[in-house]
């Protein structure tokens, strides 16, 4: 799996391509660990190029989500291919992940809020 990382207004955007399975799930978790160690806790995963995801890949995403929540951060997903979307529906993970149709929509949801 290939993972491209860029940052936009305090949100780390990871564009994944290929198969998300046991090995690539572990790699993804390592990338996330590096980001959170650097205090980046707003993460967006663009799954447009993910062609396959299995049980281990889902487990990796759930584990990442729990980690980000623990750090009071935020994880969003976008561009789910129909196959990936189907497995998210079957596992009901669509209820716990913040899923957006496009990356732009997801990033727009990170608008900063000022507190008085």
């Amino acid at each position: 799996m290939e993972i491209k990382i860029r940052e936009q207004e305090n949100v780390a955007i990871l564009s994944l391509s290929g198969r998300l399975d046991l090995a690539s799930g572990a790699t993804l978790k390592e990338h996330l660990k590096k980001l959170t160690d650097e205090k980046t806790i707003q993460i967006h995963l663009n799954l447009a190029e993910v062609e396959f995801i299995n049980s281990s890949g889902l487990g990796a995403l759930v584990s990442i989500m729990k980690e980000i929540r623990l750090l009071k951060g935020r994880l969003t997903l976008s561009n789910l291919a129909s196959y990936v979307q189907e497995i998210f529906e079957i596992t009901q993970l669509s209820h716990i992940f913040e899923i957006y149709t496009t990356e732009d929509e997801a990033l727009a949801s990170y608008q900063p809020v000022e507190a008085n």
């Binding site: 049980s55 889902l58 487990g59 497995i87 596992t91 009901q92």
Partner: peptide, 13 residues
């Protein structure tokens, strides 16, 4: 039943 299947898929192993 489908929810249980979904759970088993995530757990895997």
């Amino acid at each position: 039943r489908e929810a249980a299947v979904g759970a088993l898929i995530i757990i895997g192993g």
